[in-house]
Amino acid sequence: MNEVLSVRGLTIVFPMGHRTIRAVDNVSFSIAKGESIALVGESGSGKSTIAFALFNNVPQPGIIESGEIRYFQGGNFLEMGQASQRQVFWEKVSMVFQAAQNTLNPLLRIRRQVEDIAQAHHVNKKVAIDKARELLSTMYLDPTRVLDAYPHELSGGMKQRVSIALALLLDPEIIVLDEPTTALDVISQASVLKILNEIRRQRNISLIFITHDISVISQVVDRVLVMYAGSVVESGLVQKIVRDPSHPYAKGLIGSIPPLVGDLSDVHGLRGNPVNLLSLSGGCPFADRCPDVMTRCRTDRPLMRQLSTGNAVACHLYDAEGEEVRT
């Protein structure tokens, strides 16, 4: 398999006074060339922290306690010197930040921002502008109008599409998108999803799509990692997880999306409060909210098991063979 990214045993902690928060706990995943994945989970589950770690840029006071990140089957990115890190990143990985609409420089016209990126990466400015024109028109934007505009002259959806165009400027192989549609209006959101789906198919790019809303990812990624309290609790093909989730948390997530057709009677929200990372015990992090909780869930940490469906799940309801345990 032609891997563009491999993450192994990534653990990230935030020291908070005399306690530490384990914001990302032993997370592993890999991405094949052209394959796209989503990280899905509620607020505080560690999604953005993983995204920052992919750039070895975890916010203060966070510490990457252990783990390896390899791009393009190279060495451990976390142990490289800054110069080599930059080389990996040079043009190959880019990021669209959470609330990216607000990360455009408000004082500069879009044209100037394109030129600045070109300059920083030693690309000819005219070539970059031509490239930007082409990208903006694939984003259903009028290139001339947008290039001459200041960010405040554009709507939220237009700004988000401009951010994505800028992220594509250097032809990356991987784009990390943190909540790219969360702040957008419905129709605008649909346009961004459509564009992302087009670029991943046409350009053979890998998307790492981060969201708390599992209903938006069906058409933009191949695989999903469902995260809870810093851990991956289920992973697998998006259609399989949406149609037939195995982990009680994944079931809850899917079950809380009201359907557009058919029966509404078994739509229920997830019960209980979001997890408090400071009060996690040694057992399953979802135990307090889990409708199927068993005694051992409170004490034993469930391991990731491969299921016959192809999904992998970390839950005591499934045994080592991936069979559902009857209780």
Partner: peptide, 20 residues
């Protein structure tokens, strides 16, 4: 509205001429 693949199916899509 994004479709939940495997649960819902889109039969026809109406796209406005302008997203904004």
């Amino acid at each position: 509205v994004p479709i939940l693949e495997g649960r819902e199916r889109r039969l026809e899509e109406i796209v406005p001429r302008n997203y904004e």
